[in-house]
Design a protein around this nucleic acid. Sequence first.
DNA 1: TGTCATCATGTGACAATGTCACTGAAGGCG
DNA 2: CGCCTTCAGTGACATTGTCACATGATGACA
Lengths: 221, 221
Amino acid sequence: MNVGDWTERFQGTRALPRPVRDRLLEIARVRTYPKGRQLFAPQNIPDSLLFLYEGTIRVSQTSDNGREIVLYRLEAGESCVLTTACMLAEEAYNAEGVAETDVIGVTLPKPAFDGLVAEEPAFRDFVFAAYSRRLIDLLRVVDDVAFGRIDVRLADRLLTLVGANKEIAATHAQIASELGTAREVISRVLHDFQKRGYIAQSRGRITITDKPALRVLAGNA
Amino acid sequence: MNVGDWTERFQGTRALPRPVRDRLLEIARVRTYPKGRQLFAPQNIPDSLLFLYEGTIRVSQTSDNGREIVLYRLEAGESCVLTTACMLAEEAYNAEGVAETDVIGVTLPKPAFDGLVAEEPAFRDFVFAAYSRRLIDLLRVVDDVAFGRIDVRLADRLLTLVGANKEIAATHAQIASELGTAREVISRVLHDFQKRGYIAQSRGRITITDKPALRVLAGNA
DNA sequence: TGTCATCATGTGACAATGTCACTGAAGGCG
DNA sequence: CGCCTTCAGTGACATTGTCACATGATGACA
């Protein structure tokens, strides 16, 4: 897999001196992972830092009784620091990362990572910023789950998932696991959205017919 | 305020070479804060890293409609990286840190912090470990709030709050804000605990009378 | 000491969400 | 077509959150 000079793609590497970048291009491995592939899990923690060159990774957490909630998504240009966090942590946790699309990633072995953090302020800032981003994301999740209404959260998530398109290919159960709730709850609220004319549904497919209304409901009007 | 060689107190500084530690003792400022003092908030982000020498800091988040949830507590020997995270983050968040006891802290200005992270692997590991710790804490909070039962969470929190003692000095409202729920809910569950003989109550005070039973309920049997 | 203000707690009705046990519908495939 | 699996709909009920109050405890102060 040749993606050319991937160091151009990341804030943390773009700002590095040319020689350092050349060395990175040698050291790091570019790899592809198919959609659906589990990239990390409690039992399976990689010993390197992952830069996401292309695609999306969904990071989620599963409860003891099997329910799931999506914590955040990694987009191209970001790096997955949760894995580095987990390397250090001895405590139990249960987050996992799954490739949501076909993914191209660059893996940087831990020694090289350590060296860069030590020597390159730009890289260091990038790493800390990545940590911050995740912390902030989690704060948002806590806020939503603890204090948010399910219809508001669902409206917001539908808008996120649909992006610039009109349709979402997802079952009610999948959406429920986005928000950490039960399938029946999603079915009921979607039914309500449908009655109000915000969406149309068919098996495994949701068509957004009134984005503005959803935005109002989501509070992102 | 003279606390002697505080660098002895922290994993991240204990392992540093003597000369570095001596320099730290010169640069960093030891300060005390009274119980109840707000140490950081969205509007009030310190530009230095805080090492907690003595006391406890409660980090909590408040929702738009005024409800609050405790995210985690900082104990002596830990450092508060959330502030460094927030320094970098441009996004909105609403976590705040309040001194839960009188507190002695050591503040390290950002330049010195940057220098240490760059030059001292031991310090760097300490910082990353602190980040990991917080991430894991937040994962736990998400799990509890999204999937946990309120009686189980309350039992667990009561045990945490009571520590090795027998009594907790807290109102129902305060406990509710620990768990991000409503006062009435806590009242009801505590009433139930009382009927079962797990606790005794008086105004602003809860006495744990059956720790083992609470542990069983909390799943930490 | 009585009165009052304030805060902590109790309570019932109801709303929102989660759980359970089903049912029927849709689509894939022999 | 008939069978099987997955998806979605539904009603009953449990848990939790919200609201509007009532009651009780405490302390300030005339």
